[in-house]
Simulated assay, not measured.
Amino acid sequence: MKEISLYTIAFLGGIFLAVQAGFNSQLGNYLKQPVFAVVVTSFGSTLFGILLACLLTKKAPTTTLLVNVPWYLWFAGALFSMLGISFYFYTIPKLGISKVIVLGLCGQLLFSFLAGNYGWLEVPVELITPKRVLGIGAMIIGILLLNMK
């Protein structure tokens, strides 16, 4: 049952990211500036994150724990998040949400395929196998079919 719950949460996360992309591309259109829309969205995410952390966290991280975090981990995820979201905000009004999400998913799949195989970013190793190559190939064919006119 635990695995099904995790799959469901991951699936819902994908839906939420697609919904988020649609709303935030509208915000970027209204503001005529996708990067400013990312700033507004990030501020809102920070507020919701603080609220959720206060509701769900029993104990805050200690100062010792915070000081031991490598300096780049405080900023690297935020940089890639800002760039990825900005790219989405910029391209959704031009290409449409389904194409952007499908192309973004393709990028995520290919990167995660390599990162998993080599253990990049300290993720669990998932070696490239013929079955996984076939699966990625099927996804890429699907992406091409979805984007054909």
Rank of each mutant, 00 (worst) to 15 (best):
A10F: 11
K59P: 05
Y30D: 04
L109S: 06
S86K: 06
Y72R: 13
S112T: 01
Y30E: 06
G107N: 05
I85R: 00
I101G: 04
L103N: 03
E126P: 10
T62P: 01
L110R: 07
Q108W: 06
L121F: 12
L52Q: 07
P130T: 05
V123R: 05
L12E: 04
T41R: 05
L27S: 06
Q20Y: 08
G119K: 04
A76Y: 13
M82S: 11
G44C: 09
A78E: 12
S86G: 12
C106N: 10
F23T: 07
R132V: 04
A53I: 13
S81M: 15
V40H: 04
I50A: 08
L79D: 14
K32G: 08
P130Q: 08
W74T: 04
T62I: 07
L127V: 13
Y118C: 09
C54N: 15
Y72P: 01
V123A: 01
Y90Q: 11
G96H: 06
I101Q: 00
Y118D: 10
E126D: 14
L127A: 15
I97E: 02
A115D: 02
A60E: 10
G107K: 07
V100P: 02
P130L: 10
V39T: 07
F43A: 12
G22K: 01
L52F: 05
L51E: 08
W74G: 05
T62Y: 01
K131R: 14
G22I: 04
L47Q: 04
A60R: 11
L65S: 09
A10W: 10
G104V: 02
L27H: 00
G49Y: 07
K32Q: 12
E122S: 15
A60H: 12
S98Y: 14
A18M: 06
G107D: 03
L110H: 04
L12Y: 07
L31C: 05
F11M: 09
Q108E: 03
T64H: 14
S112L: 00
I128F: 10
K94I: 03
G84Y: 03
L51K: 11
Q33Y: 08
T64I: 13
W74R: 10
F111D: 01
F23D: 03
G14A: 02
T63M: 13
Q20A: 14
P70M: 02
Y72L: 12
P70S: 05
A18D: 06
F111A: 02
Q33P: 06
F89M: 10
L27A: 00
S45A: 08
C54H: 15
S25H: 03
G22N: 03
Q33V: 09
L73K: 15
G13S: 01
I97K: 04
L103P: 01
F111M: 06
I85G: 00
L109M: 09
L83V: 12
L79N: 13
P70G: 03
T91R: 03
T63Y: 06
G28M: 02
A10R: 11
G14W: 06
T63S: 15
K99C: 13
A60Y: 10
L114P: 00
R132N: 08
G104L: 03
